[in-house]
Structures are given as C-alpha cells and as structure tokens.
Nucleic acid binder design. Structure first.
Lengths: 113, 113
DNA sequence: TTAATCGTGCGACTATTTTCGAACAGTATG
DNA sequence: CATACTGTTCGAAAATAGTCGCACGATTAA
C-alpha cells in the first residue's frame, strides 16, 4: 500500500489568482520565504509552534495552488518550493514577491543596498 | 469644502501581503488589468454590471492596499493604477502579475469583441 | 428649485477561510 | 510485538470576506 500520495497541479494548470491568494497569507508567505532560503524543508520546521492540523491546512493549500511540492519521507513530510515551475509559468513572480517581502517586512538584513 | 477625500497609504507603507490579497480576487485583478490597459478610468467602467456598493467595496480595498489612487471628479470617481509607486516599492510585481494573468486566463472580458 | 445621477456608509446576510481538538492510519524504534 | 511519533481527516467554531439593498449627501442639469 502506498504510504502517502499527494496531488500536484501541472505547471500549466497553476492559476495566478490562486498563487497570489496562497502568498497573501502572512503565515504561508513566511513558509515560502523559508523554503526559498533553505530548500527542501521538513514540514514541521515551517511552523514548529502551530497545531499539526493547522500546518497541514496551509501546506495543503500551498500544494494545491501549485506553490510547493510535497513528498512523504518516512513518517515525515518534506516540502519543496516549485520555484522552477513557477518561474516557467509566471517569470519573475517569486523573486519579486520575496524581494518585496524582505524589504517590506521588518529589518531583514538589507546588505545589498 | 472638499467634496470627497480619500486616504491612500504612502508608498513605503504598502504591504506586499495586502497587495497580493487585493490581486488574488478575480474581480479586482480584472479591474487592475483594465486600469493597466486604459489608464485612469471612471470607476463605473470597471464594473458596469455590479451594484454600486459592491463596486465601492472593491475599489476601496484596492485603494487601501495601495494598488490604486482614487480621485473625485464631480460626482464621478476616477481610478488610477499606482503603477509607479508599486514599481518603486515592489519592482516588477505588477508587470509579472499582469503578464501571468494574460497568459493564464485566455478568457479576457469580452467587452471589446 | 426640482429631479436625476453618482458614490458612500450602514446593516444584514451568505460564503469562504482560518483555527484547532480529537480520532485515525502509517512509520520508526525498541 | 508494543510504543512513540508523524501527518491526515473530520467536525465544529470563530474570524474574515463578499454581496447587495437602502438611505443619505453631494453634484449636475433642467
């Protein structure tokens, strides 16, 4: 029996409105930022203080909107940013959002001014 | 006495999450697309079939999130995209979103058919 | 002035989203 | 095997967002 399988939208099925909505939630935007910095990340590291069901809710929403790829690893769950797919579908979007997030939010080091 | 005044956030107060949320709504995203194409537009042209109160709701949300500039013109209300401010705040964001919207959604408003 | 038009604010309602506890199933460890 | 740990699902609750009728003030035109 397959352990856990996840459905992911094809790259050309990713809808801009759903991506924007997924990224408009501060919690999820922060998860995406972490994924962009760290690469594939254990799901629990994306929200150590959140109830598990809440974490599942947000990771599922990110997955269904095409922002992340989810992979079962033993009993854990590894999350990857679909940066290449997003770059192909909406060139520049991810970089722009993350750059804007860094500059907009609190004092994340602005070394390269 | 000024007829109608509107509050607009300063450019450096525009928050990425709020902008993304504003653009994640299909109705508002379409308004923004029209504004990008047509420039300053009479508010009623952005949603001729919508109830006025609904239209006000969406234009206010776009204004408060820093996406548009609203100006009273007689009894009408002219809407401008804050494209320069957005470009300064989040370089590339607007172009990327609109380009992604065009490519993703082929069913543009059929008003100009 | 009178009438028509426009946008706004209010209030109520519906729909969607978020949160999270509890029970459950799969996995690793002993 | 039993136990501890993981993520998922379900259900319900709360919070948020969208829709829209209506009354009102302001503006324009006759």
């Amino acid at each position: 029996m397959p352990p856990r399988t996840y459905h992911h939208p094809d790259t050309d099925e990713i809808a801009i409105a759903r991506v924007l909505f997924a990224l408009s939630e501060p919690l999820r935007l922060n998860m995406v930022r972490m994924l962009a910095e760290q690469g594939e990340t254990d799901s629990i590291d994306l929200g150590p203080d959140l109830p598990r069901s809440t974490l599942t809710h947000h990771t599922s929403l990110l997955r269904e909107s095409g922002v992340v790829f989810v992979r079962a690893e033993g009993r854990k769950c590894m999350i990857q940013l679909r940066d290449e797919d997003l770059e192909q579908r909406f060139p520049g979007l991810l970089d722009t959002v993350l750059t804007g997030y860094e500059s907009a939010d609190d004092d994340h080091s602005e070394a390269d001014a």
